[in-house]
Amino acid sequence: MKRIFILALMAIVISGCAKQFLADDPESNPLSNFEHLWHELNNKYSYFEYKSIDWNEIYSTYRPMVYEGMSDKELFDVMASMLYELNDGHVNITSPFDRSRNWNWFLDYPANFNENIIYRNYLGSDYKITGPLHNQIIDEALYVYYSSFGSSISEANIDELIDRAQGLNGIIIDIRSNGGGSSNNAVALASALTDQDFDYGYSRVKNGPGKDNFSPWRKLSISPRSGSRFTGQVVLLCNRSSYSSSNLFAQMMKSLPNAMLVGDNTGGGGGIPAYGELPNGWIFRFSATQTINPQGEHIENGVPVDISIELSPVDEANSIDTILEAALSILKSDK
């Protein structure tokens, strides 16, 4: 009986202490956090070879900047600078006080977009708000402004959009300054613009710590949706701020025979970002996959447009969107 009670007492003692049977959390100091970040990126980042980045050299540059007793903000700055070297909009680190970034993919280029002109001069006061798709019929074409792939499109939204486009010269989809979001929305929209399956590229996932450890390439395809579809002319408006899922959508449209890309090349972001955590709880993000087009070219640095047009400062001053006007002209001439 005594042994039974001892065992029962042990059960009570260990209850609520499940964490005690795991090893302690790793030590969190400037060096351990820096090392963790560097090693995680070293093992999991997907674009070292494509971008010809010597990550070891970057380590030897930034490691000496880390020292015991440095403040969190100083450590953050060192880490942010190190990640900046990857020149990748999908790479960042988030602390409670800041999030690092590299936005050269659009800051180094003209904006080619003015949202005020779109709302005041083209969408006007009676445009339709079909979910996140703001749309208006302009010169016998359906103009659709989609500002973020982070805003979900429903099947009913697409039905409404396609219904509105029937009988018109075409659809102009404006994803300028759309920084991405969920690729599911890109697939949903693309599947409404085709009557047959089409391939738009390949992707592969990092599957080991070696620089060339990747899964086999997986074909990326679009199948037509079961509901209503529009198979007329599509013009996609892009700029350098069209990034990530917008970049992917641009590649889908690039592969669609009845679609044309107009404006400026997209900003890129061909790798799907994955996440990790440092011993101090800061979250970091990095590209963990690669995407190529059907010709085998990476889309990490953007998808080229078919017709390159810049927003003219003179037009902009007169509230005219040069790029949208060009798209309208294309659809008129193709009528």
Binding site: G16, A18, K19, L22, G276, E277, P279
Partner: peptide, 17 residues
């Protein structure tokens, strides 16, 4: 009712409890 503690190094070096 009870407690779970998890450390998945592929997700985080920290334990989630």
């Amino acid at each position: 009712v009870g407690q779970t503690a998890l450390r998945d190094q592929s997700m985080s070096p920290l334990a989630y409890v």
